[in-house]
Design a protein around this nucleic acid. Sequence first.
DNA 1: TTGGCAACTGAATCGAAGT
DNA 2: CACTTCGATTCAGTTGCCA
Lengths: 371, 371
Amino acid sequence: MAPEAAAEEASRLPIDSILVGDCIDHMNALPAGSVDLVFADPPYNLQLEQGLTRPDQSKVDAVDDEWDKFDSFAHYDKFTRAWLKAARRVLKPDGALWVIGSYHNIFRVGAALQDLDYWMLNDVIWRKANPMPNFRGTRFTNAHETLIWAAKSQKSRVTFNYEAMKLANDDTQMRSDWLFPICTGTERLKNDDDEKVHPTQKPEALLFRILNATTKPGDVVLDPFFGTGTTGAVARKLGRHFIGIEREDSYINAALKRIAAIRPGVFEALQSVTPKRKEVRIPFGSLIEQGLIEPGAQLFDLNKRYSAMVRADGSLVSGSHQGSIHKVGALVQGAEACNGWTFWHHEQSGRPTPIDNLRIGIRAKLELMSA
Amino acid sequence: MAPEAAAEEASRLPIDSILVGDCIDHMNALPAGSVDLVFADPPYNLQLEQGLTRPDQSKVDAVDDEWDKFDSFAHYDKFTRAWLKAARRVLKPDGALWVIGSYHNIFRVGAALQDLDYWMLNDVIWRKANPMPNFRGTRFTNAHETLIWAAKSQKSRVTFNYEAMKLANDDTQMRSDWLFPICTGTERLKNDDDEKVHPTQKPEALLFRILNATTKPGDVVLDPFFGTGTTGAVARKLGRHFIGIEREDSYINAALKRIAAIRPGVFEALQSVTPKRKEVRIPFGSLIEQGLIEPGAQLFDLNKRYSAMVRADGSLVSGSHQGSIHKVGALVQGAEACNGWTFWHHEQSGRPTPIDNLRIGIRAKLELMSA
DNA sequence: TTGGCAACTGAATCGAAGT
DNA sequence: CACTTCGATTCAGTTGCCA
């Protein structure tokens, strides 16, 4: 999309604000295909029948809010499918959605997602460093919650900042199980009576990872169950836009105050690690143009089982096979595909060296020149 | 159930054997309410559309067996509900079920469970120490699988060896996230051509924890998707009985060979830590009868905020309150309930000591006498 | 200021047996 | 079935008070 078109579209959206009322109504009033990401923390439908006391006889302050009450699974399913459908309409074609839940509701949400033609990408486990124990000793400590990351459709090419996640995880791929503490301490919003404003406020670290992993700076993130605005707060810190929808005044007031106090992130600090596929494309032919490889040079694989000759136009020849470095690499092996850059080697300082090293050298030079 | 009745019932069951054929048919032929636990590792309905290749172009040996193919979610749901329903009929009233799955199928299985009036107890995450990386770099490494532990009904009083789990976890409650390596090495069954016999063989450690946590020695465990018999192998090691159902001859042959090679566990080694609630009941009055506490003695709480006098009949008096140690403990605190054994203390060697220590001493003596 | 201790808290489908 | 009685059961972390 051209920058002007993007700016115009954003102007039609209630960017960086909270819509007051029912999330389904509000989503249906937004323009279709206008949002990059949805993050949703819907009611979990906990079916708590009696109070719970700790071993010292004190009472557990449970979630007993009206918004978490549903008559039956059928009612909960109906509600779930309605908001998921509305969210899907608002999403851009390459948009994606995150939902969080517990075993009470997440299986129903997941099945509904699939039925509505969302395409599941991962389920992710939030492992709680400090969960509430099981006081009665009757089950395993409920020490995690489940998130689902799903694309709008199977065809969606969603944003995934793979390199940034890998970097954040000590240079190994980010896994599907994440460890975070629950939201406590100064981060937990309290009212004037020192009571928690929201019973289930999520930690910012969780949203931080989600937005860092699956949005770009400037993206629009919609949260239909905004609560006290963790999504909005993190979006602002990370230079993303948010749209919040919330019914309860007490939550909205807390969220507005919270978000207003945040200094938005500095643009330079928000750039992700450059994904490899966004790096400048260096065609094999340019290596010849620049005299790094001479026409007629012999290339071979690491084990010297196969060899090929370089032609002036950047093509390779090996026996009866000819074509690009990738195609000929595949043909000589009888493989379906081949990365010619890492497969083919040339002699350099007496050692077989992948031709990709030449490409890496050119990229480094280009960066120096543009800096 | 009386031992003879249990023995007779077991004789009607195809104990410690593998039934060949469709699991739904076989389950429907078993007597209703006859099985203590079901463990199920159903087809995951993986939606792999094309072969997956590693960066070096080698092919990933993925699950592409016929038994994992379903035309649509509707077909998969129908199949799921059918076997879950059949399993529920076979379960004893206090029986429970475990299912394992991935994000492809577990949400459908979980929703079906709830619709069929199973009662969910925990979802448990198997975190894989060594998962397969995401070769394409397009998602988070899929590093876990999800298990659901559910009772036959909300009323079921299922087996949970809380103390054994706590012991196994360095004396803190076992959490809902479990870390195990995937099944590799000598544990992984290979055929004569050194190919893996089953594409998704589960590690024995996983079943070990499940059976240790939620069955008693002698219990009958049914596995409707027996595969190469991990459930049977572990059941035999732990002195539990198994019933396996499987269609594929190659799996059955491997399972039979595997299980035959196992020496069943020794009975003494299989006993779990004794849960406190199964210990001999010692009434408070017996402490007075045995002269460990004299009538007229003063008891007090740890902080000496409350005190009470012991009467000869085993009742306590504190101001206008009188009754059992539990009742008076609750009344003086204004609490709804109180464990008098740990609340009330007496002076012993100049220190406030809970009266529960006296009970512990009596229990120890009784054990010595009966040994 | 710091250290030690007591008090408090978090999305929880949280008991079993007898009358 | 409802109701009563007996009595079993908590982890990691934060806050606040007091020495």
